[in-house]
């Protein structure tokens, strides 16, 4: 389903960020164009087969988010390759495609299109999204007037309306008030239990133990252990 083959990702950290031509030219002439290399991932390989729920753990800066971005196709790895078969829905940050001048209804279609859903699909699921988000009559109000909780509810409802073949989740389980958190958690469980392949990043070890069938521990861009949740988590907890 997902084949990650010897992936390495190098970032060039310009010591100061050059964004203008003049700056670039003066630095170039002075010979001050220096980069510091930083390897966010080094020779990472693993395979995920259909239906597996894989948790990824590790400290901040271990390369978890970079890995998810490479698998989603947002970043291109410096070396190595990633092969995915099936539709991917990345939930890296909810609501990043919203336009704040449009109404909730218009944003459902805009954001749905960004996530790759078809028009017919969105029309048929429209009621379901509306009901799940509990927005009611606010759906025809420009979303710049929404509270942050309402925005998150709408975004979550759009993102999870499909049953994708591959779901990529970067810590978004808890949105909205207590009731909605309960509901969204149930929805995530439903998605993960429905034969979907899931890649899941979290800092909450209990969540990982509860949900995942396999855990990968990343540290400084390398895989430390890749195995059963119990083994990996206990090793991780001991180290931390």
């Amino acid at each position: 389903m997902i084949q990650v083959d010897n992936v390495s990702m190098r970032f060039k950290l310009a010591l100061d960020r050059i964004t203008s031509l003049k700056e670039y030219m003066t630095k170039l002439i002075k010979g001050q164009l220096q980069y510091e290399e930083f390897w966010a991932l080094r020779n990472v390989s693993f395979n995920v087969s259909k239906g597996e729920v894989v948790g990824i753990i590790g400290k901040n800066g271990a390369g978890k988010s970079t890995l998810l971005k490479i698998i989603s196709g947002i970043l291109k790895p410096t070396e190595g390759s990633v092969k995915c078969s099936g539709s991917i829905v990345p939930m890296l940050e909810l609501g990043s495609g919203f336009d704040h001048d449009l109404t909730g209804r218009e944003n459902i279609f805009l954001n749905g299109a960004i996530l790759g859903y078809s028009k017919e699909f969105l029309e048929s699921k429209y009621e379901e999204i509306l009901e799940f988000s509990e927005l009611g009559k606010f759906i025809d109000v420009p979303i710049r007037n929404y509270s942050s909780g309402m925005l998150m509810r709408l975004a979550f409802s759009i993102a999870t309306v499909v049953n994708p073949e591959i779901l990529i989740v970067d810590e978004i389980l808890a949105v909205g008030d207590a009731d909605f958190q309960e509901k969204s958690k149930a929805r995530m469980m439903e998605l993960m239990g429905g034969g979907t392949t899931v890649l899941f990043v979290s800092h909450t070890i209990e969540q990982i133990m509860e949900l995942c069938s396999r855990v990968i521990w990343l540290e400084q861009g390398n895989i430390v252990i890749d195995g059963k949740p119990d083994d990996v988590c206990s090793a991780y907890l001991q180290k931390v």
Partner: peptide, 20 residues
Amino acid sequence: RRYKFLLQQLVSRDFKAKYK
């Protein structure tokens, strides 16, 4: 073909946003 709908949505957003 796959992104026709997205293109349509983005064009209509730009157009709506312009005269909003």
